[in-house]
């Protein structure tokens, strides 16, 4: 495979991305996310550039894989993100807080839930405000799944993705998990990854 072919290849086939709605943004766009937007549909929906999503998933996986599993925290206040982050954390061996983020988790050593992660992944910077705030105070880098309308305030690495869809969040975290495991050498390749996208989907 030439470098060019390699570069043009996506992590999964484009159809899976598209049918999962990974690229479907919102009716509003933020100035921060402008560079990740591919087009605006006739119905006014902003569509994300799938190639950029793919690139950023790779970059994020690289960043995550450099930390020890126990140094990574992934959160999702959003309901559709809760199963994906739980599955991701199970496979990667990191911390996860699906649901309400207990204030003080990163800042109050007196709490039972207190942890000192070295990196935070938020499913939605707007919905995961509390975790974001505490990570800012702890001075740890923040990866954010960001939809077309998200601000990237305090996010150090944005992954442009539909962070509201059930299937979309499943695909994003499934890919992140697979890529991290590959980079860590825990699996030898895509075929060695036994989890399925549907295992990551929130149940209705």
């Amino acid at each position: 495979m030439t470098e060019e072919q390699k570069a043009s290849e996506l992590l999964i086939d484009e159809d899976t991305y598209l049918t999962s709605g990974v690229h479907i943004g919102t009716q509003q766009k933020s100035a921060d996310m402008k560079k990740f937007i591919f087009k605006v549909r006739s119905d006014g929906l902003y569509v994300l550039d799938i190639k950029k999503t793919d690139e950023r998933l790779r970059t994020a996986a690289q960043m995550i894989s450099r930390f020890k599993p126990e140094e990574v925290l992934v959160v999702s206040a959003r309901q559709y993100g809760q199963r994906p982050v739980r599955q991701f954390s199970n496979l990667i061996g990191c911390h996860s807080f699906p649901g309400r983020f207990v204030p003080g988790t990163l800042t109050n050593p007196a709490l039972d839930v207190y942890i000192e992660p070295k990196i935070l992944i938020v499913t939605d910077p707007a919905a995961d405000q509390q975790a974001l705030k505490e990570a800012i105070n702890s001075r740890i880098p923040i990866i954010g799944l960001c939809d077309a309308n998200n601000e990237t305030k305090y996010v150090d690495l944005a992954i442009p993705v539909n962070n509201k869809g059930r299937r979309s969040l499943a695909v994003a975290y499934w890919l992140l998990a697979r890529e991290v495991l590959k980079l860590r050498g825990d699996i030898t390749g895509d075929d060695d990854f036994k989890a399925e996208i549907k295992d990551f989907e929130a149940t209705l």
């Binding site: 690289q62 960043m63 800012i136 001075r139 740890i140 150090d156």
Partner: peptide, 8 residues
């Protein structure tokens, strides 16, 4: 609120 990290 500052942060340092290795280039991702």
């Amino acid at each position: 609120h500052d942060v340092m990290f290795i280039c991702p």
